[in-house]
């Protein structure tokens, strides 16, 4: 090898050594070994069930000994069924009752709490998270008693104030509101903690610079705090949307989807198919919901990204 070639090789060596090490057989083997459990679990508990459910969505199968190929009939049935769209509409209304109010409320409360010199902050954080960790079924039972038309304390208080009784759980107009109240009560603590963590992650220097520029509290909040919280807001809106689109337990225990299916959400409607062993329609319903929720979530993420 010529001197020049040796020098060239020596110069190349530092550049090639790490690359070879990165592709080296020992490291690659170990890396593969480390990620294998994930792929095994993912294949067994996510990919395969999804694949299986996708196949089911093209079958007319009620769990019996026989099934029949149905092509796109399950999808066509759902997309032309008023009940499917009514359940989606109910879900959308419940989303409207919950997410904007909860998001704005949590941002405002987090803003106030981050500025205030509060005592008993640990106690406060525990208090707001208690509803989040309380079993939903137990809370729903309490709600049934509190919002009962004839004997509930809410209507009793309305009566004392001279207001008419409301059919909280048994009217098409109010049943969704009561479900929304239950969700708000249960999850607002979580919303507050997400927003509080986001606010506390904003560097203090930004606020100091704003103060030097003469920004007041409101300007600082709207021009500094809220824009810098957009990732947390996007996260919360997406998580809430995902949760509400699958909402099942709240209407199931509170109203059982009634009266007259007026509080049947998409999740409960899906459950009704599965519960009746109409597995093909249930699977098709699942994939329609997945497609819709995915589109909504992507739209929300894009919206917050563009607002940057």
């Amino acid at each position: 090898m010529s001197l020049l070639a040796n020098r060239v090789a020596a110069r190349r060596a530092p550049a090639t050594r790490p690359a070879r090490a990165a592709r080296g057989p020992r490291t690659g083997w170990r890396g593969l070994l480390l990620v294998t459990p994930f792929f095994v679990f993912f294949a067994a508990f996510a990919a395969y069930p999804l694949y299986y459910a996708f196949q089911l969505s093209f079958l007319d199968w009620h769990g019996g000994a026989t099934y029949r190929w149905a092509g796109l009939d399950n999808y066509r049935y759902l997309l032309t069924n008023p009940d499917f769209w009514a359940a989606l509409g109910n879900t959308a209304l419940i989303w409207l009752l919950i997410v904007p109010l909860q998001t704005i409320g949590a941002i405002a409360a987090a803003g106030a709490l981050s500025r205030a010199r509060l005592r008993f902050t640990r106690l406060l954080r525990t208090a707001v998270i208690i509803p989040y960790v309380t079993p939903l079924a137990a809370m729903a039972q309490a709600f049934i008693l509190i919002f009962d038309r004839d004997y509930g304390v809410v209507n009793h208080l309305l009566g004392l104030a001279g207001l008419p009784h409301v059919e909280w759980l048994t009217s098409t107009e109010w049943s969704k509101v009561t479900i929304a109240l239950l969700v708000l009560w249960k999850t607002s603590g979580f919303a507050l903690i997400v927003m509080l963590a986001a606010i506390q992650g904003i560097p203090q220097e930004v606020y100091e610079a704003a103060a030097l520029d003469g920004a007041g509290p409101l300007t600082t909040f709207w021009r500094i705090t809220v824009p810098l919280m957009r990732h947390a807001i996007a996260f919360f809106v997406v998580i809430s949307t995902l949760g509400i689109s699958q909402m099942f337990l709240e209407p199931y225990v509170l109203t059982d989807g009634g009266p007259y299916n007026s509080s049947t959400t998409s999740g409960l409607y899906l459950f009704q198919h599965i519960g009746a062993s109409d597995l093909g329609t249930g699977a098709a319903n699942t994939f329609l919901l997945v497609a819709m929720v995915l589109a909504l979530s992507l739209a929300a993420v894009r919206l917050f990204r563009e607002s940057k």
């Binding site: 196949q55 089911l56 093209f58 079958l59 026989t66 190929w69 092509g71």
Partner: peptide, 20 residues
């Protein structure tokens, strides 16, 4: 559709969905 059905039926046979 029929070919798709046959493919799905074959796969489902292996998945545990009962046959006629």
């Amino acid at each position: 559709l029929g070919l798709g059905g046959l493919a799905a039926a074959g796969a489902l046979g292996a998945c545990g969905v009962p046959t006629e």
